[in-house]
Design a protein around this nucleic acid. Sequence first.
DNA 1: ACTAAGTCGATTATCTAAGTCGACAATTCA
DNA 2: TGAATTGTCGACTTAGATAATCGACTTAGT
Lengths: 147, 147
Amino acid sequence: MKLSTRARYGLRALLDLALHQGEGLVQLKWIALRQQISLPYLEHLIRPLVAGGLVKSVRGARGGVTLYKPASEIRLREVIRLLEGPTGLVECVDNPATCERSAVCVVRDVWSAMEEAMVGVLDSMTLQDLVQREETKRQAAMETYCI
Amino acid sequence: MKLSTRARYGLRALLDLALHQGEGLVQLKWIALRQQISLPYLEHLIRPLVAGGLVKSVRGARGGVTLYKPASEIRLREVIRLLEGPTGLVECVDNPATCERSAVCVVRDVWSAMEEAMVGVLDSMTLQDLVQREETKRQAAMETYCI
DNA sequence: ACTAAGTCGATTATCTAAGTCGACAATTCA
DNA sequence: TGAATTGTCGACTTAGATAATCGACTTAGT
């Protein structure tokens, strides 16, 4: 039960993008550099986010990417769903047909409850929340640094 | 972010065992048969549960396995931990040293919250809860069948 | 035109989970 | 005692997914 690096890197990349919103288009290479992700790999991570309507990309010279909608309207649930694909924790939860026990399986209920709990957490957070936290943390770090 | 078959099969096997508690020692081959898990594989699944003190095993002819303590004292969290190993959703949550960003990483906070939510669900359920649900469901199915 | 970006698909590499097998140890029972 | 039965253990193989790279392509600016 491990989170894929797609999700980990992908969310970090998106947060990085959100943190640099004021500056217009952001080039992938800078995100890659800051987040220490190889550029070709980052391209793959961004793709589903573009396809999912979370990120807008502009090709050509001086192109780059930017958020398609305000960070406050981007729920982490959506982000993770796009990055990890539609399959949940266990196949039979989303797709009962894959296991003939589904209807009576109590173990399935457990996985279902677990998934609901996770989704609940992701659903309650937006990208904006992360941006705020990041800035709070950065400020706190700054202050201790100055003292 | 998939649950391993170890966890899925393992919990099913344990539940099967719990459901047959009244009958003394239960042989692995019957569990394997009922749950449609290959015997050699089931042996591997049971092992950590024995090592973890959830299951007692008796070797030799007429041997078998049985719960080491009442089902009501077996938390699912413990079961999953034994089956899946100690590593959580993301390395850096349990083991901050693996990522130098850990201290300031807000993305890590997200994973941490997710993990907490999942663990909370597992912590709130015992094997006995599953046994009861199973019996309730079975009874319900029985009634509809009779009608 | 030329350069600088993102896009896309093919490919490779790496890793881990999944599952099998054979030898062994313990226990029962004849 | 010895043969049958049952769990134990570790080595091995396989399969599949994830991670990551690469090169050819498209699009836009200068």
